[in-house]
Design a protein around this nucleic acid. Structure first.
Lengths: 280, 280
DNA sequence: CGTCTTTTTGAATACTGTCAATTTAAGTGG
DNA sequence: CCACTTAAATTGACAGTATTCAAAAAGACG
C-alpha cells in the first residue's frame, strides 16, 4: 500500500489516503489507527473523556476541560463516526438539525448559497472544531458543510448532548463557550473584511491559518492550504484573482513563498505589518 | 411635561424622554410604566415568565417559549434593571463577564476598537435581544456595548442563568438557540459584506431594519434609524460618505425617502432587486 | 497521455475611498 | 427664546484599488 509512487501530489504529510477502499458504512464504532498520524498538542492538561480517549484532537475538542468524574456523564452521549470524502457534503443547507459534528481529521468548509448562484464561504473547520451550532437557531442547518479533503467527523446527537449538559455544569459551560468562540471568530472576520485593503485580509488569513496549524501541532511556518483560491476569495469577500495577486505580491516582496497550495511564511513581522496596513 | 414645544427633534414616537431627571441608582427592582408605550407583537403564544410578566418584549426575549410551570425555575434567576443614557457604555471591551444583557427598550451598538484607532461595529441590538454571548468564550466582553439612544436593559447573572438552565431543558435549548441565532445573523452579515456592490449592502440593511421593526410592532415602511451614517458604514464595511450616497441614490430613484434619519420605504421590490444586484 | 480544473497574469473599466467644502440639525448657555 | 457652537449629513472632485473579461500556464486526475 505504501509502494513507490510518483510524487505528483505535493508531499502531504497530513493527507489521509483512503486508497480506493472506502467503506460504505458511514458510522463506525471503532476508530482507525490514524490517530497516531496526527500529532497532538501536549501542553493542555485535559484528562480524556470516555469515547474520546485516544483521540488526537481531544484537548481542543468538545470534551476539553471535563474532569475525570464527568467522563461518565459525557459517555452517555453516543457518538458515531463518519467518513466524508473530498467534495462530499456532510449536511446540506436546510437539512434538519440532529447532530453536531466534530472534525476528527481533515478540513471542512461551511458555505451558503447566494441568490446569484454563487456560494459564500463562512468558515473553514480544522480538526478539533465543532460544527453545526448555527443550526440550533431554526433546527435546520443554514450552511452546507463540505469536506475539502478526505475527512472524518464525530457525530454528536444534539438532544443527548443537551441532556448530558443539563447534569454536567462543565459541559454546559463548554457548550456555550464553543458557540461564543465561534461568535468571536465571526466578529474578527467581520473586522477583517471591513478592512478596505485586500492585502490586509489575505495577510490576516495566512497568519490565522499559521496559528491554527501551530495549535494543532503542525509547523506554523510551512503548511498546505486545503482550499482553492476561489474559496479563500469567497471567505475574504473578494475574488480569486485578487487572492492570487496578493499571494504573488507577498512572494515578490519576500514575505512568503507560494508553490500552488503550499505556503511558506518567511517574514511574519512583515505580514503582520501588512495586516495592520502599516506599509511604508 | 407634554407642553407645546417646537418640533425640532423629528417626531419620535419611540423615543424615551428621561427629561433631565435621571436617577443615579442604576439597578431598580420595579419596572417603569413605559411598557405601555411599546407596542408588542401579539401573535406569539408565549406565557409570561415571572419577573418578565408585563414586559413588552417578553415574547421575543430570553423567556420566550418557557411553559407556565417553568416560570418558577426561571424566577430563581435574579434579574436587575439598568438604565443607560445615550452614548453611555453598558460594558467595555475587556470587562469581565458576569452578566448577559437583554434590551428592554432603546438601541445598542456592539463595537470593537481597531488598531488604527477606529471602531468596528459588529451589531445593532434592538429591544428583546440578548447581548453578551460573545463574552462567554474568554469570560471577558470582546466588544463595547454602547447605548445609541436612552435605553434600559435587564441584567441577567450568567452563573445563575447557567444553573437554571441545568434544570430547565427548555431554557437550555433557548440559550443555545439564541447564541445560534446570533451566529446566523453574523453569517448573513458576512454574506452581505462580501457582496461587492455597496448599494446591495445598504439595501439589505434597510430591508433588515424594516423587518426587525415590524417584528417589534412598528411600521415596516417608515422608521427612524437610531445610528449615525458612520456607524452604518462601519457595520457594512464601507464609509459614511458611501452610505449617504447610496441613500441619496435610492431616494433619487424613488425607492425611498430620506429625511436625515427618518427612512420611508416606497418600493420594497426595487430595494430587493438592488439587494440581489439585479439592476437593469 | 489527454482532458479538465486550478492558478496565474494582463489590460481596461468601474467603483469606492479620500479629501474638502457646504448645509443642516442639535445641543449649550446667556 | 435666541444666538452660538458643535456634531451630523450631503455633495463634489480626484486618485487609487479591485473587479471584470480574457488568455495562457501548470498541475491533477483518470
Amino acid at each position: 500500500m505504501i509502494g513507490i509512487r510518483p510524487i505528483k501530489k505535493e508531499e502531504d504529510e497530513m493527507a489521509l489516503d483512503f486508497n480506493g477502499t472506502f467503506p460504505e458504512s458511514l458510522v463506525v464504532e471503532q476508530p482507525i489507527a490514524w490517530d497516531a498520524l496526527k500529532p497532538a498538542k501536549v501542553d493542555a492538561p485535559t484528562p480524556p473523556a470516555s469515547q474520546c480517549a485516544g483521540c488526537a484532537v481531544r484537548r481542543m475538542c468538545l470534551p476539553a476541560g471535563l474532569a475525570d468524574w464527568e467522563e461518565r456523564g459525557f459517555s452517555s452521549v453516543r457518538i458515531g463516526r463518519r467518513r466524508v470524502r473530498k467534495g462530499q457534503a456532510l449536511c446540506r443547507e436546510g437539512d434538519p438539525f440532529h447532530f453536531m459534528y466534530a472534525v476528527r481529521c481533515g478540513t471542512f468548509k461551511a458555505a451558503a448559497a447566494k441568490r446569484d448562484g454563487g456560494e459564500q464561504v463562512t468558515a473553514f473547520h480544522l480538526p478539533g472544531e465543532l460544527m453545526g451550532f448555527d443550526a440550533a437557531s431554526v433546527q435546520r442547518h443554514p450552511t452546507t458543510l463540505t469536506a475539502i479533503e478526505d475527512s472524518e467527523v464525530c457525530c454528536v446527537p444534539y438532544s443527548q448532548l443537551s441532556d448530558a449538559s443539563g447534569e454536567l455544569r462543565t459541559l454546559r459551560t463548554r457548550l456555550v463557550q464553543l458557540a461564543s468562540t465561534e461568535l468571536v471568530r465571526d466578529h474578527q472576520l467581520l473586522m477583517l473584511i471591513s478592512n478596505t485593503h485586500t492585502e490586509a485580509r489575505v495577510a490576516a488569513f495566512l497568519l490565522g491559518m499559521s496559528k491554527r496549524m501551530q495549535e494543532r501541532g503542525y509547523s506554523p511556518s510551512e503548511f498546505l492550504l486545503r482550499m482553492t483560491r476561489a474559496e479563500i476569495g469567497s471567505y475574504l469577500g473578494t475574488t480569486l484573482e485578487t487572492v492570487s495577486r496578493c499571494l504573488s505580491a507577498f512572494a515578490r516582496r519576500g514575505f512568503i513563498t507560494v508553490r500552488k497550495r503550499r505556503i511558506q511564511l518567511l517574514d511574519v513581522p512583515a505580514l503582520t505589518r501588512a495586516f495592520e496596513c502599516e506599509m511604508p
